[in-house]
């Protein structure tokens, strides 16, 4: 879709929620995404981690879906790519496990543990957190969008 057309869709008052919601959503979505990545990347130091951060990432996209309508969300991240990222996250996790096998054990922490309480530490755990975060975020978004598309189809069939 062309940029102008997306802009028209975003600003069309008949699509999505009211202007107030749209304005707030436009500001907050970026912040929510940032916060999600923060939770994922600092998962080995603070509470949270892959799953919690991934849920927050998915919430950002779900907010987009609710505020601006499903079409805008699908332009930003299509269902194909959502399910692709979902699989890539899981593949990354398993591949990291297999690499650990080369060092003796499945899922062995083969990277240097680093200094405790610094961002780059704990070996493979941040990498695993990142892959889980991507997987959970994409999967949850895919679930929302899938249920939404499919539920709409069923309702339209009825009318």
């Amino acid at each position: 879709m062309k940029k102008e057309k997306i802009k028209d869709l975003i600003e069309d008052p008949n699509i999505g929620m009211t202007l107030i919601v749209k304005t707030v959503a436009r500001i907050t979505i970026a912040l929510i995404l940032l916060y999600g990545f923060y939770i994922i990347i600092y998962g080995h130091l603070t509470p949270g981690g892959g799953f919690a951060g991934g849920v927050i990432l998915a919430i950002a996209y779900t907010l987009m879906m609710l505020a601006f309508s499903r079409h805008i969300a699908l332009v930003k991240l299509s269902d194909f790519w959502a399910s692709m990222w979902d699989n890539i996250g899981m593949l990354a996790f398993i591949v990291i496990g297999f690499v650990g096998l080369g060092f003796g054990y499945f899922l062995f922490n083969f990277l240097s543990k680093g200094k405790p309480f610094s961002l780059v530490s704990a070996g493979i755990i941040p990498l695993l957190n990142l892959s889980i975060g991507i997987k959970v975020g994409a999967a949850l978004y895919a679930i929302f969008i899938g249920l939404s598309i499919y539920g709409r189809l069923v309702l339209e069939e009825e009318e």
């Binding site: 679930i143 899938g146 249920l147 499919y150 539920g151 069923v154």
Partner: peptide
């Protein structure tokens, strides 16, 4: 998620 998908399909 699976239960919701099932309930939509059942509907």
């Amino acid at each position: 998620a699976l239960m919701s998908a099932y309930s939509i399909k059942l509907y």
